[in-house]
Each structure stands twice: as C-alpha cells, then as structure tokens.
Nucleic acid binder design. Sequence first.
DNA 1: GAAAATTAATTGCATTTGCATGTATATCGG
DNA 2: CCGATATACATGCAAATGCAATTAATTTTC
Lengths: 171, 171
Amino acid sequence: MAEAVQRQAVPQDPRIDASAAGDPSLQDIGLGNYAPYLLNRIMGRYNASLRDEMAQLGLTTPKMRALAVLSVIDAPLVRELAVYAVVEQSTLSRALDGLAADGLIARSADTADSRGVRISLTPAGRTAFARLWPHMAQAQARMFRGIGAAEREAFVSTLQTMLANIRKHPI
Amino acid sequence: MAEAVQRQAVPQDPRIDASAAGDPSLQDIGLGNYAPYLLNRIMGRYNASLRDEMAQLGLTTPKMRALAVLSVIDAPLVRELAVYAVVEQSTLSRALDGLAADGLIARSADTADSRGVRISLTPAGRTAFARLWPHMAQAQARMFRGIGAAEREAFVSTLQTMLANIRKHPI
DNA sequence: GAAAATTAATTGCATTTGCATGTATATCGG
DNA sequence: CCGATATACATGCAAATGCAATTAATTTTC
C-alpha cells in the first residue's frame, strides 16, 4: 500500500518545492509553533466538545452546522450549503433527510433551475437553532478566554485572509 | 442570497446561558466574522487537499499525522501519540497496524509499564516522512500567502493561548 | 435544434470511524 | 497483601462517511 513513500533519499520534485534550500524541518519549527498542528488540535477539541453537547440535543455535527448556516443564509442550494457547512454533499443530503423528518428544514425546488433544491429553516428549525446557539457561543467564548478584543480582531482578520488564500469555491 | 431573516425571540434556557443579556446572534456576528466557522472552513480545505496528496503516497490522514508527530516526539505512548496527532486512539491503533506492516514504525513495550506501547519511526519511516513533509510545508505556505512575519507570529501566539484554553489533556 | 457535455442532488456500497467491550497490567484502599 | 478500581491498548460491531454511480435537468456545441 505505502511502498511508494518508502523509497530512499528522493530528490525533491521541483514542482513540489521550488525553494532551492528546502523547507525547514518540523523539528526546527517545533510542533507548538506549527500553525496547522495548533489549528487541528484546537478545532479537534472544539468540535468534539460541541459534538457531545449536540448529541444530547439529538443532533449530529452536520445537522448542527446546517442549522447554523441556515440561520444566516436564506434558502441556499444544497451544494452551497455543503460548502458553508464544511460537510460533504452526500453527507449533507442525508443530514437534511433527518432534519426534514424532524420538521426543522424544508426542501423546495429552485424556481430558475429545477435540478436545484433550496433549503430553508422551518419555524421549528429556527427554534431548534436558538436552543443550540448558546452552546456554540459558549464554546467560542471558552476558546477566546483571556484574549483581548484587539488581539481577537487581528486573529479573525488573519483568518479571513487565510480563507481567501485557500478556498477553492467562489463562495 | 437573503439577509434579515426574521428572528423569533425564543426565550433562552437559563441553564444553558446564565448571562442575562444572552449571546449576540450568529446573524449579528456574521458567518465571516465567526472564528469557528472560519477555522473549520480553513482546516477543512487544508486537510482535504493534504489528504488527496497523501492518498497518492499511499497514506491516510491518521498515518500522515502519526509520522509527523513521530518525527518530532521520540517514542511516545499510543495514547500520547493519539493526542498529538488528533486521532481517536482506536483509529490510531489501526493506522499503526498499517504503518507497522509497511515497516514505517515499530511498536515496543514500555520498560516501566508493560501495558504501554511505545511507537518509534524506523529509518524507512523517517524517509517516508521526509518525502511527505514538503507537501505539508507547502500547504502551510499556501495558507499564509500574503501574510507577513509579524502578523503570522501574532496569529501563532494567539493559537497557543487558545490551545492552552481549551485543551483537556495536560500534553 | 438535437446530441454531447455539464451540473444538481440523491443513493448504493465499501471503507472508515468511534463507541463499547475485552484483555492485560498497574495502582489504590483497607 | 489482596480484592477493587483504574489505565493501556486492541478489537468487535454498528453507524457514519465519502466515493462513484444514478437520475434528472440545463447548457453547450456543431
């Protein structure tokens, strides 16, 4: 399975890293200074703790995220919702089945393109989100404990730049 | 894409949020200013793109992360590795089966506690990581494109505070 | 204007995941 | 020092996931 990776001392593919000197090693940087490591640790814990709280409300992470996005964005297409909610479209489709069965969302055909399905919150869905939002707000507050407004704004601003850098979708 | 979705003034459950005023709504904040949303979008894309590249090297995300952590931390216990790699222990255990089968890691009983299993990179494992590291370094570089050294250091410093805030494990 | 290509969403299916359990070892309390 | 409890890791199994194929509709091309 992994044979390809264990070959010896392969010279760097110039398409992969054009910088002649090569990258500083992870040891040089140190795990604790390596941003993706920190980001994964932080989000791993944030998402896990939220997931446990959502389970008690009978919701999964995809369902929670769909409700959250729908509280802000009105009647998106399924594929748009998938991007915003950071959920695979097939997973989202099934999560929407569950939310619809619980009467929290409604599916309706797009008027302009009958392939498209627009998703909207029902009043019950809005109520459900109002109940789960405090958990999300609190998890965020825990995350930012001891971080002042200025630092926090700078942090969010950097995140916005980063999202613009790496995003693949125009939305 | 619509704005001003009507709000329903659902009374807050006092057990959920003791702060009398309640949280500002997600609409008030705006998705694009809500840090957990940005973080999930960013890490979703970062991890997906790295996962695709790793698949071509015959590695999964848990395997990649295990190798990365092992390149920095010497002979951790399985549970420690699971924390650093942000992978469930049962998932990690199976990823280690695969890495061991490929000769990339070695398991050895802990000398002090015979229940413990210490994991270390083999020379082949070290070579494998040397080959995948440029991909990780480049994904990180993409993420920080157009962000200066000072901003980047401030960002990482905030992340370190956040990790200290939310982490559950002492490590 | 019809065939070909593209796009939207859902669904089938194999893989992956994670919870719960099992097994072995270590530590604690009396 | 012995039974009870806790911890470490692996594994059984059901559920969740994601890729690929399907169905349906739109757009493009010639």
